[in-house]
Design a protein around this nucleic acid. Sequence first.
DNA 1: AGAGTATTTGACCTTGAGGTACAAAATTCA
DNA 2: TGAATTTTGTACCTCAAGGTCAAATACTCT
Lengths: 192, 192
Amino acid sequence: MGRPKKFDPEKAVEQAAETFRVHGYAETSPQSLADSLGIGKGSLYHAFGSKHELFLKSLERYTDTQLADLKAVMDEGRPIRERVRELLTGFVEADLNDPDRCGCLVVNTAVELRASDEPAVKLLGRSFEATESVLHLAFIAAQHAGEIDADRDPKALAGLVQSSMIGLRVLVKTTSDRDRLGSIIDAAVAAI
Amino acid sequence: MGRPKKFDPEKAVEQAAETFRVHGYAETSPQSLADSLGIGKGSLYHAFGSKHELFLKSLERYTDTQLADLKAVMDEGRPIRERVRELLTGFVEADLNDPDRCGCLVVNTAVELRASDEPAVKLLGRSFEATESVLHLAFIAAQHAGEIDADRDPKALAGLVQSSMIGLRVLVKTTSDRDRLGSIIDAAVAAI
DNA sequence: AGAGTATTTGACCTTGAGGTACAAAATTCA
DNA sequence: TGAATTTTGTACCTCAAGGTCAAATACTCT
């Protein structure tokens, strides 16, 4: 009972994640957040408590979505190198298509955040681990399928692909050189 | 002539770079900047014009220093893989030894920055290119020395090492797992 | 010493961040 | 219909960011 909510909290968290991704945590004001959700600032605080609490919820939702997307790509029935290439190319192309180069909320937050923000650091740590785990499992499977040499360390490969992916998403913030980025992807795929 | 400066502008820019590295651009206030330089806020504005101008100078100095450090390591007369390992390990260890995981000003700025900040984006772009170039040249030399297969693309390898390096410095913000980070370094070195 | 020049400082200004308070509005239940 | 409950939105609060300014200070040159 009581007055019905004007907005869908789920959608709001999703929209907030996008706002944080585009403008960053520090540069997103409660007012702009409220505006982007189409509600008053008071309602926002009533519903979410604080900017930081809303941010944590947004970040969590974002990591969930991202992980699902990653799994979707890695679950495709194609050669492992094709899937990894698709993954890296997808991120790079997405970033290049955005003139503001906003990039990935997880990467952005990992850098912008203070180490003292423990809940956020934990969320990010879990997200990075989950990503690595998906890659790790895919590489193990690929080894069993004979696509990757059995003497390679699948976990280390997962870490290498992950760190290259993150590095690419940072590099793309200051360059639009598709050849250069593409050759990095080539090298990453070749390293598997 | 005129009243002599109370501080050394060179040292001040260096100190400012460190403050920006530790706290980030947005989170560094003119007041704290002035405090860290041991001067009044007015003096700071008189000497540097604005927070942003000081930031650009700081960033430029930082990139110069960083590039010199990189060259120093890559100029050592040791096997290429040892040098690359030393490079990556050095950054990771430095970051791990800092409880606040402040990391690298260039990486941090590339992420925190708005794409609309053209002078900063240019500086960062040049810095990333210069870094890649040093690695590129080192790999070419290593190929001539027979340390790296001649059929590898040295520029792509440079890009891969660079992006892994950046990725590692982001990952280390949320993890302290030396084994995991170490195995990523192993994989990166093995990929050369 | 005095003129001229450069630097220093704290006081002051405007703007907006992050958040609170409260009365009005919209619903359900009896 | 009225009571209870919940959400809404504006007005308001405090604090600090980023920056400006004028007066005081410290130097050089003549």
